[in-house]
Computed example of a mutant assay.
Amino acid sequence: MFSRSSLAASAVVGGILVFTGMQTVNALWIIPEAREEGRKLEREERDSATNKAIGELRDEADRARFNRRLCIERGRLYVNATGLCVE
């Protein structure tokens, strides 16, 4: 029926299609999700370190100053009366 060369050519074309499909899946779904997961883990580590540093400050006034600066750096509004950071 089919010659060996046509079977070999079909196998090569099929391999190229599978390879292209897998690269597309990686580029569109797997890699972006992995990057976002990495960013999320990095943010969690940074927030943990920040909270630890806040806990090690000497007094409440130092903590309030630090929290205020952190709030402003993140583009939020610090309410002095309550000591809360709001969006």
Rank of each mutant, 00 (worst) to 15 (best):
M1W: 14
F2K: 13
F2V: 12
F2W: 08
S3L: 10
R4N: 15
R4I: 12
S6P: 07
S6E: 11
S6W: 01
L7A: 09
L7N: 11
L7Y: 11
L7F: 05
A9C: 12
A9I: 08
S10W: 09
A11I: 04
V12L: 11
V13W: 00
G14N: 04
G14Y: 05
I16C: 04
L17P: 00
F19N: 03
F19D: 08
G21C: 00
G21R: 00
G21H: 00
Q23D: 11
Q23G: 01
T24I: 06
T24A: 01
V25H: 03
V25G: 01
N26A: 11
A27M: 13
L28A: 13
L28V: 11
L28K: 09
I30W: 10
I31T: 09
P32F: 01
E33V: 04
A34Q: 06
R35D: 08
R35G: 10
E36G: 01
E36A: 05
E36N: 05
G38L: 04
G38D: 02
R39F: 05
R39H: 01
K40C: 07
K40R: 15
K40T: 10
K40G: 15
L41P: 08
L41R: 11
R43E: 03
R43A: 13
E44F: 09
E44L: 04
E44M: 13
E44H: 15
R46I: 06
R46M: 07
R46T: 05
D47A: 09
D47W: 07
D47K: 01
D47L: 02
S48W: 08
S48P: 08
S48E: 08
A49G: 05
A49E: 07
A49L: 10
T50M: 10
T50S: 09
N51A: 08
K52H: 12
K52D: 08
A53H: 10
I54E: 15
I54N: 15
I54Y: 15
G55E: 08
G55D: 10
E56G: 03
E56Y: 14
E56N: 14
R58D: 02
R58T: 06
D59I: 03
D59R: 05
D59S: 03
D59P: 00
D59A: 01
E60L: 08
E60W: 03
E60A: 03
A61E: 02
A61F: 08
A61H: 11
R65P: 13
F66R: 08
F66P: 09
N67E: 10
N67H: 05
R68L: 06
R68N: 07
R69T: 11
L70N: 15
L70M: 13
C71I: 04
I72M: 02
E73V: 03
G75C: 00
R76V: 02
R76M: 05
Y78H: 06
Y78F: 11
N80Q: 15
N80R: 09
N80T: 09
A81E: 15
T82N: 10
G83V: 03
L84W: 13
C85D: 01
C85H: 10
C85L: 07
E87M: 03
E87W: 07
E87S: 10
